[in-house]
């Protein structure tokens, strides 16, 4: 197996160029898919027979909830790579993922609340998934706060990596404990919608929205990782050359 591509990608300047080439495609594809997904979700899809038009919130809630968890896993994995191989690139990816993941966790929570009001009759129900999502937001905020508290970017990233890994072990335990906690209280009946056989004109916009959100998250993470690399490598030649090239152009125009 030839690993040179991996080493080349791992070097900051080549990753910077690679990300610069990939990000516009991800962004463009994401926006196109999102435009289709939202149009089809809001206009083409028929109202749900039980939830009427309120079900359309699914098209923003589910993608946000899905990426919130995926990005946390990505952040912890990048953190593990950063700790084990001391790879600058993995540190940059980890630090770049945290704000993106946190923003979509917040979105999943807010849309969950807005969906909950018409369906459950209350903005907030201490339902297992919603509660676990809230704890996930706290975990993201912890990583962002810890990273911001360090002056030394590399030490900060490694501390965040340790925290993210402990958080990753914590997430399934939280989920399980909250489910157990919910099973303890009898009486309150939460409206449970079974897994319906979702019709195609309802499902396709959802798949498009999911893919779009992953693409746009990828775009944001690549751009943010580029920023992190610029900061971390600010004293190297490639960054200085890039800065004069880009900055010079910006000053002329």
């Amino acid at each position: 197996m030839n690993w040179t591509w991996f080493h080349r990608l791992g070097s900051p300047p080549s990753f910077y160029r690679f990300a610069g080439r990939l990000a516009p495609w991800l962004g463009g594809l994401g926006l196109l898919l999102l435009a289709y997904g939202w149009y089809a979700g809001l206009v083409l899809a028929p109202p749900d027979y039980q939830q009427k038009d309120a079900f359309r919130i699914i098209y923003v809630h589910v993608p946000a909830a899905a990426v919130s968890l995926s990005l946390y896993v990505l952040m912890a994995l990048a953190g593990a790579v950063a700790l084990i191989w001391r790879m600058k690139l993995a540190e940059a990816v980890m630090v770049a993922t945290a704000p993106v993941g946190a923003s979509f966790t917040a979105l999943a929570l807010v849309t969950g609340m807005l969906w909950g009001k018409p369906m459950w009759g209350a903005y907030w129900v201490w339902d297992a998934r919603l509660t676990a999502e809230l704890v996930l937001l706290f975990l993201y905020c912890g990583v962002i706060g810890l990273n911001a508290a360090f002056d030394d970017a590399r030490a900060g990233a490694r501390a965040c990596a340790l925290l993210a890994i402990v958080g990753l072990v914590n997430v399934p335990i939280v989920h399980f404990s909250v489910e157990w906690w919910n099973s303890l209280h009898q009486g309150s009946t939460i409206l449970k919608f079974g897994k319906p056989a979702i019709s195609a004109d309802m499902a396709w916009p959802l798949y498009a929205g999911l893919l779009a959100t992953y693409c746009l998250c990828g775009h944001a993470i690549l751009r943010r990782a580029q920023n992190e690399l610029l900061l971390r490598e600010r004293n190297t030649r490639w960054v200085r050359e890039l800065a004069t090239e880009l900055g010079g152009g910006a000053r002329v125009s």
Partner: peptide
């Protein structure tokens, strides 16, 4: 269908 606040609120945010 009467859910304007919730649907448009969600999509707006």
């Amino acid at each position: 269908g009467g859910y304007a606040l919730y649907v448009w609120g969600s999509f707006g945010i």
